[in-house]
C-alpha cells in the first residue's frame, strides 16, 4: 500500500526532476562557465575520474562573469523590457479581440457551440511555423493584403507591414488568440443566464448587467487567458524572427542569436536564466488565480 502511494506520487516528481530540474541545473551550470573553442563550447567540464580535487577545481572555475556581462551591454535589458512591452500590448489586443469572440460563442445556439469551438482550435492542426510563414505571404509588399487593398483602390502604394513591429503584433495576436478565447469561453459558458435576468429585473439595462454581472463573473477566465498569452509571448522568438525587422527587439530572438550565431552558450544560458526569473512572477500569479477560481467554485 505504501509502495503504491510512493510510486503514484513518485512518477510526477521523477518527471519534474528529469525533465525540468536536471536540465535547469545543466543550463545554470553553463551560464556560470566560460566560452571555449571546444565541443561542448564552454569550459570547465566535469571529469569525475580526477577525484575530489577535480570537482574542487571545476567548482572554482565557475563564476558570475556572464551575468555581469549582461549588465554592461544595454542590448540585453532593452530586449527584456521590449519583450515585456510587446507581451503586454499583445495580451491587451488579444483580450480585446478574444473576449467578444468568447462571448459570441457562449451566447450562440447550443448546437452551434462545438462547431465554433472547433473553428477556434482548427489552426492548431497546421504547423505553427507554416502558419507564421503564411503571414509573410500575406503581409509582404507584394503580398495578398497589399494586392487586395490596391486592387479595390484604397491605397496607391503598397503598405510596408512585414518586418515592422505591426507584423509582430499581428503574428502574436493571431497565434495566441485561442489561448485567450478558450478560458474566457469556459467561464462565460457556465454563467447562469438567470443571473443576467435577475440583474435586469433589479433595474439594470442590458449594458450595465453586462458590466456588473457578466464581466466580474468571467474574471478568472480573463486572468487565466491573459497569463496564457503573456507568459509564452515574453520568450517568443519565431514570430519576431520571421515577421519582425531588425528593430523589433525581443529577448527570445537575442537568446537564439547568442546560442546559434555567436555560439556563446554561457551568455545564452545566462539570458535564459534571467528570462526564467522574469517569468516566475507572472507564473506564480497565474497559479494563484487558478487556485482562487477553484475555491470560488466549491
Amino acid at each position: 500500500m505504501k509502495l503504491r502511494r510512493l510510486t503514484l506520487i513518485g512518477i510526477p516528481y521523477f518527471w519534474l526532476l528529469a525533465l525540468f530540474l536536471i536540465p535547469f541545473g545543466i543550463v545554470l551550470k553553463i551560464s556560470l562557465s566560460d566560452i571555449a573553442l571546444a565541443i561542448p563550447p564552454y569550459t570547465p567540464t566535469l571529469d569525475i575520474s580526477g577525484g575530489w580535487q577535480a570537482v574542487r577545481d571545476f567548482l572554482s572555475e565557475l563564476d558570475f562573469e556572464n551575468f555581469e556581462f549582461l549588465t554592461t551591454d544595454d542590448l540585453y535589458w532593452k530586449a527584456y523590457l521590449s519583450s515585456l512591452k510587446i507581451a503586454a500590448i499583445s495580451t491587451l489586443l488579444a483580450l480585446l479581440l478574444g473576449f467578444p469572440m468568447a462571448y459570441g460563442m457562449a451566447k450562440a445556439r447550443e448546437d452551434w457551440r462545438p462547431t465554433l469551438m472547433m473553428l477556434v482550435i482548427l489552426p492548431f492542426w497546421t504547423s505553427f511555423l507554416i502558419r507564421v510563414y503564411a503571414w509573410v505571404g500575406i503581409l509582404s509588399t507584394e503580398g495578398y493584403l497589399n494586392q487586395f487593398l490596391m486592387g479595390i483602390g484604397i491605397i496607391g502604394d503598397p503598405l510596408v507591414i512585414l518586418n515592422t513591429s505591426t507584423a509582430v503584433y499581428i503574428g502574436i495576436v493571431y497565434t495566441y488568440l485561442p489561448f485567450m478565447i478558450l478560458p474566457i469561453y469556459a467561464t462565460l459558458e457556465r454563467l447562469d443566464e438567470s443571473l443576467i435576468e435577475a440583474a435586469e429585473d433589479l433595474g439594470c439595462s442590458r449594458i450595465s448587467a453586462f458590466w456588473l454581472v457578466t464581466v466580474p463573473l468571467s474574471k478568472y477566465g480573463v486572468i487565466a487567458g491573459c497569463f496564457l498569452v503573456f507568459i509564452p509571448v515574453i520568450g517568443e522568438f519565431v514570430i519576431p524572427a520571421l515577421l519582425g525587422g531588425s528593430k523589433t527587439l525581443m529577448i527570445g530572438k537575442v537568446l537564439w542569436e547568442e546560442f546559434f550565431s555567436n555560439r556563446d552558450w554561457p551568455v545564452a544560458s545566462a539570458v535564459a536564466i534571467i528570462l526564467l526569473l522574469v517569468l516566475i512572477f507572472p507564473i506564480v500569479l497565474f497559479q494563484r488565480n487558478e487556485q482562487k477560481q477553484r475555491e470560488a467554485e466549491q
Binding site: D192, S194, E197, A198, A199, L202, L217
Partner: peptide, 20 residues
C-alpha cells in the same frame, strides 16, 4: 416596458444570487 423599468420583481427558481 423593459424588465428593468417595471415595478415588478422576481424571485428566481435557482435564486440567481450574484456569487461575486
Amino acid at each position: 416596458i423593459p424588465p428593468n423599468k417595471r415595478e415588478v420583481n422576481m424571485m428566481f427558481q435557482s435564486y440567481a444570487l450574484f456569487p461575486h
